[in-house]
């Protein structure tokens, strides 16, 4: 199979691998943010909770702000570091 080597060295795969790793990195960050705020602030007795916009602080930071932070982060990452590539094979009909 001649295509084998072409496939091994395809520069598009370098891009793809890097972007997949970015995805993993974002998920790890997302998890830490979610966990630390939820159980860090939410772990005490409910009578001691502080409230932000009427919601318990742990919930506000972990769930509400968490979504906003992830949306902004994902937008920046995609716009800055994601590269446009062609999915079709050169010299092949699609």
């Amino acid at each position: 199979m001649k295509q084998q080597n072409i496939y091994d060295n395809d520069p598009r795969y370098k891009i793809a691998n890097r972007e997949a790793l970015i995805g993993v990195g974002l998920a790890v960050f997302n998890f830490i943010w979610w966990f630390v705020f939820a159980y860090g602030l939410g772990g005490r007795d409910p009578s001691e909770y502080s409230y932000v916009f009427g919601l318990p602080a742990w919930f506000f930071y972990s769930c509400v702000l968490g979504v906003v932070v992830m949306a902004v982060l994902v937008t920046i990452v995609v716009k800055k570091w994601f590269v446009e590539v062609s999915f079709d094979e050169e010299g092949e009909e699609q």
Binding site: R12, Y13, I15, A16, N17, E19, A20, I22, G23, V24, L26, A27, N30, F31, W34, A38, F59, S62, C63, G66, V67, M70, V74, V85, F87
Partner: peptide, 21 residues
């Protein structure tokens, strides 16, 4: 709700990891 928020990651993770490859 906290539990449900674990789903937010699907929005970017799936397309990034399966992604271009």
């Amino acid at each position: 709700v906290l539990l449900a928020m674990t789903q937010v990651s699907t929005g970017y993770f799936v397309l990034m990891v399966l992604g271009k490859k």
